[in-house]
Design a protein around this nucleic acid. Structure first.
Lengths: 350, 350
DNA sequence: GGAATTCCAGGGAGCGCTCTCTCCAAGGTC
DNA sequence: GACCTTGGAGAGAGCGCTCCCTGGAATTCC
């Protein structure tokens, strides 16, 4: 099919297709953009011309006039204050099942609309690169996965008037749509499950404390236990990696050997914690029950398989994409939030 | 800083900046593009105008005339014949440390040049989406991670004259630059190490057999053993995921319980194999020695820590980026290949 | 049958930028 | 002092496309 690019030549233009078909540039443009007021016979002819010349619209020219690019960015952002990281940012995000699920969910909505998705890691030193990319008008909007309430990116996008949707409640109030899961409810499900199976010495491994979602899970867990009379809940913070979970579990058990129930803020860290417990010779779930969060593929890959809190990341990402598209279309409807419900998935670890 | 976008208005143009500064459009353009023939005083003035108006070049307009976009795509491609997959493609690639290292390496080279990197998964049903994106001229070139010798994408890019560099030797001869590691040498290092520590019943878990790199690792392992008189080497194929490694190990040990040395074509599968061996009650390395491939973060996360074959993915990706940039600049220099050297990293598992 | 209406193709302007070409002024040379 | 060179700014064309507007042909209506 197509081809026929003569040589190192640049690709054919609308004008050339029009000439081939013996019609005007306008008519070809109409055919390409699916405008209905074209004689079916002519439409057919133009289509043949397009195939014969191997024409592909020049996006730069088009978006110069339409002011649309038909692509949106998925930006995974991280602020600078996250210093003492052992694993590099890129390894972290491309190793966490999180991003894959988000991407899949967003594509589910975007592809049918013919919108491209561009994935951009934005760790702090490169922040301005990404911001420049966005400002230059490469994309029509942004799906923003931000990992800190100190992240300036949401505010910047707001100021610049770039349509964006957040993946979680913003750290500071911002007129921006976002999608979230009831974090506190999820933590409460974990707490109540641990209590229900008879555990009394509960502790938790949280995510980074500058993330709203980490704060919420921690607060939710504590609040749920407080209701049952547990005034103090030992905790340690990780950074959502397996290694950090392992480390946090070690600290926690060194300080509180009596712990018999552990809520870990994501599955990856829970997997690390399981590792630590194995090394410490604690049996799971007999001696220590462990509940994770996410219900990611990692939960199935460890032994024992993880009991965890399911959050529907794919659907959440799809909803983000929908919110973004509606935002891109109209002139600024008021920001909306869509909150999903977590649920407990019972497996072997608790 | 900047800001001052009046309201929902669109951003200022060159013309407006020029007017603010009382100079011509050309002069502003020169300042922005760093052309040296501008009076320092004027340059200063124009700079102030840029800051005051919050001007950002419109990329569409610029690339319409320059025919450059200053961005390249990192395409991770997968052909359709990979059907019976349990894990979805996106989960697979965003879970494998591979992509993170590649991205990091490529950015190392691209960022200093002011080139943006756009990451695009291209699993088969969406192949044409990505191809369209590339043809539309969103990017100047492509770094292609292709996972099958049946993948049509390399050939298509070639036909379209889109500059591209491959991450491994192409399945079919193609006038295209690529970067690779001496796969066979890597496999040989593994084989010889296993022999050196006294193992006699060797087997291997390979990657998908339609991948040139998998073929090479398998062939290299067999060839090295043949030299030492081992005519037959049991093998099972996985798909580079942890789960597939676990599965393959089970099959292998069910059929050949005598195996005491195992070479696994990547660390993730090796981790799965370790899991299977633990379930089977085989001690590693005492009863079975395991050697992985990649030297990824996964090799450090499992118990026992993996002895593995290191391949310098970051440097390889950086070299890919360099090859691509040189290809984009000039009119088609002849395709070059750059081959890196693997080395054995000894840890606990063998 | 003539006027009014509809339908659909073409013409042309212009999106915001770069880049070549032109032009002016200042300095240098004989 | 007349000529040439050079440095540096402006003018203008045009990249490939969309979209509004115009105008001719076909159709409808009284």
């Amino acid at each position: 099919m197509t081809s026929s690019r003569p040589d190192g030549q640049r690709s054919p233009t609308l004008e050339e297709v029009a000439e081939w078909a013996g019609v005007s540039r306008s008519t070809v443009s109409r055919v390409i953009n699916g405008v209905s007021t074209v004689d079916p016979e002519l439409r057919e002819l133009v289509q043949r011309a397009i195939d014969a010349t191997g024409y592909v619209p020049n996006l730069a020219a088009r978006s110069l006039v339409t002011r649309r690019t038909d692509s949106v960015a998925l930006v995974v952002s991280e602020p600078d204050d996250r210093t003492q990281q052992t694993e590099p940012f890129l390894n972290r995000i491309f190793t966490d099942p999180f991003l894959g699920r988000i991407t899949a969910g967003a594509l589910e909505v975007l592809r049918p609309e013919g919108i491209h998705l561009v994935i951009m890691p934005a760790e702090s030193p490169a922040h301005h690169h990404v911001l420049r990319y966005l400002r230059q008008g490469h994309v029509d909007g942004v799906l923003l996965i931000s990992s800190s309430d100190e992240d300036p990116l949401p505010q910047q996008l707001c100021d610049l008037g770039i349509p964006a949707v957040l993946s979680a409640r913003p750290g500071k109030p911002l007129p921006m749509s976002y999608v979230d899961v009831e974090q506190q409810v999820g933590a409460k499900l974990a707490a109540e499950h641990l209590l229900a199976i008879g555990r009394h010495h509960l502790a938790t491994i949280s995510g980074p404390l500058d993330m709203p979602s980490s704060q919420d899970r921690l607060a939710g867990f504590r609040a749920a236990l407080a209701v049952h009379g547990h005034a103090y809940v030992p905790s340690a913070a990780g950074n959502f990696t397996r290694a950090s979970g392992e480390q946090a579990a070690r600290e926690l058990f060194a300080a509180h050997p009596e712990i018999d129930g552990l809520f870990v803020a994501n599955d990856l860290m829970a997997e690390g914690a399981l590792q630590a417990l194995r090394d410490l010779g604690r049996r799971v779930p007999e001696e220590v029950a462990v509940v994770g969060f996410d219900n990611s593929i990692a939960a199935l890959q460890c032994r024992p398989q993880l009991t965890t809190i399911h959050q529907p990341l794919e659907e959440m990402a799809a909803e983000m994409a929908r919110l973004l598209l509606s935002r891109i279309g109209k002139a600024d409807p008021k920001p909306r939030s869509v909150i999903f419900h977590p649920r407990l998935v019972k497996r072997e670890s608790a």
